[in-house]
Simulated scan of single mutants.
Amino acid sequence: MALIKLGPLGQRRWRNFKKNRRAFWSLILFSLLFGLSLFAEFLANDKPILVQYRGEYYMPIRSFYSEQTFGGDFRTEAKYRDIEVKCLIRSGGLDACFDDPEAVYEDAADGVVDGEPIEKGWALWPPIPYSFNTPNDDIVGAAPSAPDRNHWLGTDDGSRDVLARVIYGFRLSVLFTLIVTVVASLIGIAAGAAMGYFGGWVDLFFQRMLEIWGGIPGLYVIIIMFAIFGRSFWLLVFLTVLFGWPALTGVVRAEFLRARNFEYVRAAKALGVSDSKIMFRHILPNAMVATLTLMPFIITGTIGGLATLDFLGYGLPSSAPSLGELTLQAKQNLQAPWLAFTAFFTFAIMLSLLVFVFEGVRDAFDPRKVFA
């Protein structure tokens, strides 16, 4: 049973989209990558996914557990990567873990310590045992370090795992872009529709407003607001939407100006159909092709804008995983080419997949294009 029941028009558009093989496979690949990034905590984390200790199960990845929970001395959160905590979990909380943790940890692998059987515990770790902000103090030499079996894409200048930061940064960039694009598009489409359909003083008012709005330096406003309120994800979303919504207004306005005098619009008005139904049920679907044509540029521009702000130091908080900050590190550490290659291929793959997908969506909404 289909989760979403499409009408005849929707089914035709979906068939056209699937026949565009590049767009269809780009959608599958991007959905797979984004779906995996949504579970980033289960892929890259410095905490175990599941711990079995003395017959009970714990999920450190979701809950707070102090070291005392596993037989330690401190009430602070357990540092699961420390050998003492690993020894306590595996050996069932033996006091000997504080004297010789490595030896006891190895002996406890067989369930026997000093000839005595123990209630052996275990911990299930993510494939990448580092979070985006976990420094690895065990690295030999100066950071950034080259890729190895522990860090598949190497580390940055803070000894943090690059692959973990890419996974978290990819998720954050896509979520930021989707939120900004959806909200800004809804506002821009509504404003453009009102301008083109009603014309007159409504169109005149919005035109003058857009002229004033376009003259405001958005980057300076973002810098000033961050200086006052501090850097935060939602503040950056709000400011980006505030200066990004006019992107679709012009093209939507033009389509509504062109279509408002068509015969079917006049017939609908003569039959007493409300203006809102005419605008969004009859005219807007015909304006979607021109609207979707600009969508790839808006999405890539939003991702590029976020990366630029992070590169300049005016983007997301410094504690957040940022692809733009990774690009800045690549610039500052030319002796570590893996940082530059990682940043380049991450942006190239992400932007290419999104552009291909929205090109397919645009063509699927275009009634003039029918794929064989």
Rank of each mutant, 00 (worst) to 15 (best):
N333W: 11
A268S: 14
W245F: 15
T291Q: 11
L236H: 04
P246V: 09
L328T: 03
Q329P: 10
R253C: 06
Q329I: 01
I228E: 06
I303H: 07
G272F: 09
L339S: 02
T327L: 14
A254L: 12
H282L: 12
T240A: 12
I224A: 08
Y264L: 15
P246R: 10
L257D: 02
L306S: 08
Q332Y: 06
A287V: 05
E255S: 08
Q332D: 10
F256T: 11
V252T: 14
T342M: 11
V237N: 02
A287K: 03
L294C: 07
I228M: 10
F262M: 14
L239G: 08
L271N: 14
Q329W: 04
P337V: 12
F311C: 01
L242N: 07
P317R: 01
T327Q: 04
N261Y: 15
A259T: 13
L306Y: 09
P296N: 14
A254N: 15
S318K: 03
I228L: 12
A268P: 10
G230N: 13
G250V: 02
F233D: 00
T308H: 07
L236R: 03
A268R: 10
L323D: 04
L294G: 15
F226I: 02
M279Q: 05
A307M: 01
Q335C: 01
L306K: 03
I283M: 07
A340C: 05
A307W: 00
L235G: 15
L309W: 07
L235A: 08
K269T: 15
L306F: 13
S318Y: 03
G244C: 03
P285K: 13
F280D: 07
T342N: 12
M225C: 13
P296F: 15
L312E: 07
S232R: 09
T327R: 01
L312A: 13
G324F: 14
S232P: 01
D310M: 03
G315D: 02
K277E: 02
A320D: 08
S319D: 15
M288C: 02
F233H: 00
